[in-house]
């Protein structure tokens, strides 16, 4: 952990590694993120409609859905999906490098495995997660709008009308700040568990699962802690 911070300058000196990981961990996750976003939005629109029906004017669905998405659903659901994909893949990759002595080989060449393998992955994930979440938020909002206006027959003024009145940049920002911490924690967990893998293919399998479970837990716990701090 301390070593990751001390060697984080490697992001600049090893740009090519950072960019490669951004593409591999981030951009390749995009289709998944967009699907998650669309369905999250759709379902929150539908549920919002069901819950408000008969109690509150439908004009409030727009702001309610919007807040739910940017504050909570976008960051947390996206992060959980990405944590599954990315922290497990980091753990599996570094874990199999560990058990096949590739990490020893790298270290024996006087190349720091933290600097060469961990830092680019952690930096890429921390950087990409807010971007992915922002995209998921956008798609989710579109999904909600689609369900409410096309299927549940609201007018688009009913949906969009009040959103500007309830739009606080702080909400969007704090959602993205959460995403930043989710990206940081899940990639660090993936690296940490990957580097400590022992015991051949079986060990790699176990590391993959462990990384997935711990990063999901970390996200849920962090989400709660950040919610207490931010609001």
């Amino acid at each position: 952990m301390g070593r990751v911070i001390r060697e984080s300058g490697a992001v600049v000196s090893r740009r090519h590694l950072f960019f490669r990981e951004c593409v591999r961990l981030g951009i390749d996750s995009l289709p998944l993120v967009l699907i998650v976003g669309a369905f999250t939005g759709a379902v929150s629109g539908w549920q919002g409609h069901y819950q408000l029906e008969g109690y509150l004017p439908f004009d409030l669905i727009g702001p309610a859905t919007f807040k739910a998405i940017v504050l909570e659903l976008g960051p947390v659901l996206t992060a959980l999906i990405i944590a599954g994909r990315v922290s497990a893949s980091i753990a599996a990759e570094l874990g199999s490098m560990k058990v096949t002595e590739q990490i020893d080989a790298l270290e024996s060449m006087a190349i720091s495995s933290t600097r060469y393998l961990a830092v680019p992955r952690i930096a890429a994930m921390t950087f990409m997660m807010p971007i992915l979440v922002a995209q998921a938020n956008f798609v989710a909002l579109m999904g909600a709008a689609f369900v409410l206006t096309m299927i549940l027959n609201l007018t688009s003024t009913q949906f969009w009308g009040l959103i500007p009145n309830f739009f606080y940049i702080y909400d969007v920002f704090s959602g993205l700040l959460k995403a930043f911490f989710f990206g940081l924690s899940s990639s660090m967990i993936g690296c940490y568990i990957g580097f400590r893998t022992t015991g051949g293919a079986e060990g790699v399998g176990a590391a993959t699962i462990t990384a997935f479970v711990w990063s999901c837990l970390a996200i849920l716990i962090l989400d709660f802690l950040l919610a207490m701090m931010l609001f």
């Binding site: 490098m97 096949t100 002595e101 590739q102 020893d104 080989a105 790298l106 024996s108 060449m109």
Partner: peptide, 9 residues
């Protein structure tokens, strides 16, 4: 160092 398993990346 040449590793027993070669340990190529």
């Amino acid at each position: 160092v040449l590793f027993q398993s070669a340990a190529l990346f």
